[in-house]
Design a protein around this nucleic acid. Sequence first.
DNA 1: TCAAATTATTTTAAGCCTAAAGTATTTCGT
DNA 2: ACGAAATACTTTAGGCTTAAAATAATTTGA
Lengths: 168, 168
Amino acid sequence: MALAKEPTPVSAKNGADQEAEYRAQTRVWLRLLACTTLIEGELRRRFREEFDFTMPRFDVLAQLDREPSGLVLGELPKRLMVSAGNLTPIVDRLVADGYITRTPSNLDRRVQIVCMTVEGRKNFRRMAKSHGAWLAELLANFPADRFDGLIGELDELKSAVRDALQKP
Amino acid sequence: MALAKEPTPVSAKNGADQEAEYRAQTRVWLRLLACTTLIEGELRRRFREEFDFTMPRFDVLAQLDREPSGLVLGELPKRLMVSAGNLTPIVDRLVADGYITRTPSNLDRRVQIVCMTVEGRKNFRRMAKSHGAWLAELLANFPADRFDGLIGELDELKSAVRDALQKP
DNA sequence: TCAAATTATTTTAAGCCTAAAGTATTTCGT
DNA sequence: ACGAAATACTTTAGGCTTAAAATAATTTGA
């Protein structure tokens, strides 16, 4: 029993084990949230102060940076894990500010192609460089030789949650 | 050099190492964000569907649950790591809905004491129970014997980021 | 004592986010 | 061919979030 590798079904656990696991799960969640909130808050602050920019806008540009020929607008909500309606005003503003273009497709007039402008790309690269440096600064005190381990754990966690969401 | 336990100062690294570390740091951040977003989205959805409630409201109640005699309003922004202005309308609504009371202090008329009502506490406990079960469900596929390790890593990460933010 | 600084909280302006409903446009089934 | 279903996107309503300015009450210091 002690050697089992598979997660034990909840129903097979006694009260004390169950309680302990609940606590551990809650702790994982609270720490995850705390780390993310901490880093996200600082990154947001710096984006605002240094570039008068927001993270959601940066995230859109980051997706577009890897697509020289642009992206179907509908791809963005999927990749960024946000709702489609959310993106409309963000894309609107990026267009208005000259970072990206939005052109209707000729083959399907429902579809729009978004593509970074030359100017937008230039500005994005500048911000991305700072973004990397900020992250390096924030994570500098974490032992470098344990990044890979943590990445692996988080990958597994993500898969585990995804699987749990798949089921029902 | 290969045995060093201390994080190597950035300035002492050559280009390739530096690049690799940047990538690892970015990966950690993206995975952290992905896990949090995934879990948070699902919890939010369930709070809304099952209880017509939001997570920020739940978070306020969770703080108050541990304080039978209530809490100075100003403690909430600190504990929840949000701005004070943010809390005003959330607390307003919780008061309006009968979950909490907000009473001005007699000693200092700037200060307000917030306290969960009996009814509020009853409802909170019910939601907290579901919250725990949801979390258990979402994390069920992650090996239980590795929760503690992950918690430790995240604690260290949090401390590392906090330290990095302290300095300047 | 009393003006200035500090502290607690609210208000405001602007942006992010979701769910749900709405508008085109295209595709599918018959 | 043509109405129904599906798809791509926008709009709307409501809540969260922040930073910065405003309000009110207390404390501090000359």
